[in-house]
Amino acid sequence: MTTQRTSSAPPAVRSLPVKQLLLTLVGWSIALIIFFPILWMVLTGFKTETAAIADPSFIFSPTLESYQAVQARSGYARFAMNSVVVAFGSTFLALLIAIPSAYAMAFLPTKRTKGTLLWMLSTKMLPPVGVLVPIYLIFRDVGLLDTRTGLIIIYTLMNLPIVVWMLYTFFKDMPKDILEAGRMDGASTFQEVFFLLLPLTLPGIASTGLLSVILSWNEAFWSLNLTSSKAAPLTAYIASFSSPEGLFWAKLSAASTMAIAPILILGWMTQKQMVRGLTFGAVK
């Protein structure tokens, strides 16, 4: 076995640099294609409105006038704070509900567990506009329109199926023996979850949480329909710079850059954690 591997090794080593170079090239090309719209948006934000609609060019005199105009017209900080509170609040609430339910489904399954999981996922298949009016009426009657609490509840409900599914997958990959050993040592269910399950699946929980934050941050339908001025997050901020009559590309790009900057930085800072979490247990 060892001999065979050794004899086949040299050609593999010789072809590796070319293969690797090609793979790297393909990887970078795909990354560039995916990133290009974002790059163009960032560049457009530093152009004048006239330059923004002129023939596309990388060479231009950068200006901050769009950023100044955007900031002068509406307070970015208020929208950004709403986004932070709503995205992290809904993620916390979703994890709080999803961890016990995913635990129950992974370790104490019944004959209806699979069906329940599929049903949960099926709620994501309904176009949100289909339930807009009933939800709007409920929110109106309980006074949740244009409140952060209302958005947190909606985003929690929106992300719950995905969060439960992801956690369920991570928990299922956990060897049951570890939990059983804990139980034999006298650990309660609460201790089992907090001192064994959560520390061992932390990368998975972190990546689920990050995904939930990103989904909530980018959500536009509910935030545009359920808020007006007080609880409006950054998606509403971006929408306010679009117009069918008038030139607005540079301002819209500046506003969009400011809106995605926090989540982009968070993504960069946590990308290792995310990749580790998403591939957690994948090589078993």
Partner: peptide, 20 residues
């Protein structure tokens, strides 16, 4: 307090609010 939205989004948003 200002709520500024793109024309079609605004129309949908206002219709929902006024109809309910």
């Amino acid at each position: 307090n200002w709520v500024v939205l793109e024309e079609n989004v605004l129309r949908q948003r206002m219709t929902t609010d006024i109809a309910t």
